Computed example of a mutant assay.
Amino acid sequence: MADVAPQSVPTAVLVMGVSGSGKSTIGEALAEHWNAAGVRTEFVDADDLHPAANKEKMHRGIPLTDDDRWPWLDRCAERMAEVLATGSRCVLANSGLKRAYRDRLRRTVPELFTVFLEGSRELLDERVHTRHHEFMPATLLDSQLETLEPLADDESGVVVEIGRTPDAIVADVDAALVGA
Score class of each variant (00 low, 15 high):
F116A: 14
A100D: 11
L49F: 09
G119N: 11
E56A: 15
L105P: 00
R131K: 08
T41S: 05
N35I: 15
H133T: 07
H129W: 06
W72Y: 08
D67I: 10
N54K: 05
E134V: 15
D68N: 06
V109P: 08
V39S: 14
V115L: 06
E122S: 09
G87W: 09
R99D: 07
S120F: 04
H129P: 01
L84N: 05
A93Q: 07
R79G: 08
E56V: 12
D45Y: 04
E82H: 11
R127Y: 09
R99H: 11
G96V: 03
A93G: 08
L64E: 08
C90P: 03
D103S: 13
K55E: 14
H133I: 10
T86Q: 02
W34E: 05
L73T: 01
V39F: 13
D67S: 14
R106T: 11
R106K: 13
D67P: 06
L124D: 06
A85Q: 03
R99W: 05
L73Q: 03
Y101I: 00
A77S: 13
R106Q: 11
E126V: 13
R106N: 12
F113I: 02
V91Y: 06
S120Y: 05
E134H: 14
H50C: 04
E42N: 15
W34Q: 05
E56S: 13
E126G: 15
P63K: 00
V91T: 01
L117H: 10
L117C: 00
F113T: 04
E118V: 14
K98M: 11
R106M: 11
A37E: 12
K98S: 04
L124M: 02
N35T: 14
R104Q: 09
R89Y: 11
Y101Q: 11
L123T: 03
T41C: 02
V44I: 14
T65S: 12
P110A: 07
P71T: 02
F116R: 14
R107C: 12
L112Y: 03
A37W: 05
A52S: 14
R69H: 04
A81M: 12
G87M: 00
A46R: 08
L105N: 02
S88I: 09
P51F: 07
G38A: 05
D68I: 02
P51Y: 10
H133D: 06
M80S: 02
I62G: 10
D68F: 03
V128D: 03
E78R: 15
D45N: 12
H50S: 03
G96L: 08
D45L: 06
D48H: 13
H132P: 09
R127W: 08
A93W: 04
R131Y: 06
E111G: 14
A100E: 11
L117F: 10
D66Y: 02
C76V: 10
H129F: 09
W34L: 09
V39R: 14
V83G: 04
V109R: 00
M80G: 10
H133Y: 11
H132Q: 12
D68S: 01
Y101N: 07
L49T: 02
R99P: 01
R79N: 09
V39M: 13
A52L: 15
I62W: 06
L84V: 10
E42C: 15
K57G: 09
T86G: 00
R99G: 07
F113K: 00
G96S: 00
N94E: 14
V83R: 02
R127S: 07
T65G: 09
